[in-house]
Nucleic acid binder design. Structure first.
Lengths: 210, 210
DNA sequence: GTCTATAGATTGATAGAC
DNA sequence: GTCTATCAATCTATAGAC
């Protein structure tokens, strides 16, 4: 049981700092210092700061998006067998639950979660483009699933509503532990499972709105 | 009809660049270069980069949030006179429409719009804190309005649903003109008024979900 | 108020010894 | 693979002439 190798230590440190401070505001020195490795190790193992970011995305998003696509395809296949449209809630669940489950699963996952939640709207094109490359196939499949689930709506309308949904999901991934404004009678703590159910109910109702 | 003074030119340039490139990624040199003024003018007129950001927020958010509070209070007052709860849609409209109207009103407003859409989840605490200072009273009044509109829901539940709503609104402010993934049969162009109505329908249905 | 010039710190990246 | 040392570029901020 040796300690993680240099490459993994850098990935872990970068994930945490990119998530909490942002890509641009995180220096390679901050990363290697947290990882306990030499500054030059980043160049040796990854080549550049951008390539490191890409590696941080890949490590989590490849398995996560594969799981999303698998669940999405199962929901659509079952609906086809039953010869009726899939439920919008189940289509959305296939997209949302894997991310929230991952987030609740391991320590440090909330940093990656915040990174992902910010990526879609990030001002930095490096971050945004790297993220879009991974999310594109999932997004397109999710959209077609919603077209099947809600055939009475136009593609245009479904597209905008899906954008609103992505906004809710992204914000949910960012906000945990960062809520500063709490009205009286509201406690910040929230069971991840309840949050997941609430989010799913919210976006399902929004997508199905008359 | 002289050209805008140095202070306004700096504000305009900063607003545009903070919106498109982000606060951290925008240098004072980029701002003064776009504004056509000397680098030292920022220190003279504002004192620091952070103070400049605060001034960029203030110029737009003080009138905008005053309008939001005014509309919000009118909706709540009318409901009190009529002795029935306000409609959730009208409460949400008082919060959402002023921003989207402003955004459609003047050129350059979409840059500020993107800045605001990103601020709530920004990794940079400078940006986030400056924004929260302005949004706090509006947020608290909006929350209490929703408590009145939807009395059958707990404060906790309303709070989370309001967070999801903020996510949708924020993302809407960010995404215009930046949508990279377009499914077949979907055109990026969208009438601002239609987008506003669609967003309002989406979040109202989400807030009212069973 | 506006300018030049520069201080002082930090950045990403790399050359070359071990 | 890991390290030291360093380069060249960039940043915010300011001192001081006009």
């Amino acid at each position: 049981m040796s300690q993680p190798d240099t490459k993994s230590r850098i990935l872990d440190a970068a994930e945490g700092l990119f998530g909490s401070d942002g890509f641009h505001a995180t220096s390679l020195r901050a990363i290697t210092s947290r990882a306990g490795v030499n500054l030059a190790a980043v160049s040796y193992h990854f080549g550049s700061k951008e390539a490191l970011l890409e590696a941080v995305f890949e490590r989590r998003l490849i398995p996560l998006n594969a799981l999303r696509l698998q669940r999405l395809n199962r929901v659509l296949a079952e609906a086809r067998v039953a010869a009726h449209p899939p439920a919008a809630r189940e289509v959305l669940r296939a997209f949302i639950e894997p991310m929230l489950e991952f987030r609740a699963s391991e320590p440090g996952a909330d940093a990656f979660s915040a990174l992902i939640g910010r990526a879609l709207a990030d001002a930095d094109e490096t971050v945004r483009a790297a993220f879009l490359r991974h999310i594109q196939p999932v997004f397109l499949q999710l959209f077609e699933g919603l077209v099947e689930a809600l055939p009475e709506q136009s593609r245009e309308q479904l597209f905008w509503r899906l954008q609103f949904t992505l906004g809710s999901v992204s914000h949910t991934l960012c906000m945990a532990g960062r809520l500063r404004i709490l009205p009286p009678g509201v406690d910040q703590g929230c069971d991840p499972e309840i949050l997941s159910t609430e989010l799913l109910s919210f976006v399902t109702a929004g997508m199905e709105a008359p």
